[in-house]
Amino acid sequence: MFKKVLIAEDFDSINIALKQSLESLGIQEIEYAKYCDDALLKFKRAKQDNNPFDLLISDLSFVEDYRKVNIASGEKLIEAIKKIEPELPIIVYSVEDKSYIIKSLFEEQNINAFVHKGRNSISQLKKAINALLTNKTYITPELDYLLQNKKTKEIDSYDISLLNYLADGVAIEQIETLFKKLNITPNSKSSIEKRVSKLKDYFKAKNTLNLIAITKDLGII
């Protein structure tokens, strides 16, 4: 069983529920932080004191308030901690349900489990922890299909950026300019138009509006 767990979550009620659940599993040393900056500081301090955390449970979104922060999201916190301790087991505990984001968390951030906040999330959290103890990954059962959906497997970050701009009503010419400023390639007007056409064919979309509707329904954007 894990000995020392760090929880990054900004709501007290959820922190209390998570702490009680972890204690019921026999985990005695539990700390939590409401800000990602504080979570990273706690993690670094524990490592320096030779009493490191052996599990991170983190939300993805944190409500903004009066305090200025350097790390504003769970994704960035995970990225920062992975640079320090690449093998640290991580459970994401979030309301997120977009397939691309969840897929990237597993494939790019190398998280070990994803638990969707909901009615059964506490029992699922316990299952996730037990899965990690046997070197298995875990995802909330009702979201498992998102990772199996073939329509999302060949979509990359370039496609996601392009689809999001199209969904916001940004014209191809403007996307070309934005991509060049952001050093996103390919960024010529013709290459962007070809990519949009390819996406329409891939999703069997009649037009750009239909493409946006389909990808939204699939949880891609």
Rank of each mutant, 00 (worst) to 15 (best):
L132V: 07
I175T: 03
I16R: 09
F203D: 00
N149W: 03
K68Y: 05
D156R: 03
E75W: 02
Q109I: 06
K126G: 15
Y100Q: 05
L182M: 15
Y145H: 14
L133R: 10
G74L: 00
Y145W: 15
L209H: 13
T137M: 09
V69T: 14
L56Y: 02
K194I: 15
M1V: 10
L60N: 02
I71Y: 01
P141S: 14
S191C: 14
G219S: 04
S123P: 09
K3M: 10
F203G: 00
E23S: 11
D38G: 07
V63I: 14
I172L: 13
Q109F: 08
L209G: 13
A205E: 04
L209N: 15
I101A: 11
T152K: 06
S13T: 10
T134P: 11
D168Y: 09
L18C: 05
R67K: 14
R119G: 15
E31I: 02
K68F: 08
S157H: 12
I30H: 03
S161N: 14
D37M: 01
A131P: 06
N210Q: 11
L163Q: 02
D144M: 11
E173A: 15
L25P: 04
I160D: 10
F43P: 04
I214K: 02
I160F: 06
A33E: 04
A17C: 08
D10N: 11
Q109P: 02
T215L: 03
K127S: 15
P89K: 01
N15Y: 01
V92A: 06
K68A: 14
K44S: 13
I221C: 08
I57F: 06
P89V: 03
K3L: 11
E108M: 01
K76C: 12
E75L: 05
S21H: 00
V92C: 04
D168E: 15
Y202I: 05
Y100V: 04
P52K: 02
L132Q: 05
P52D: 12
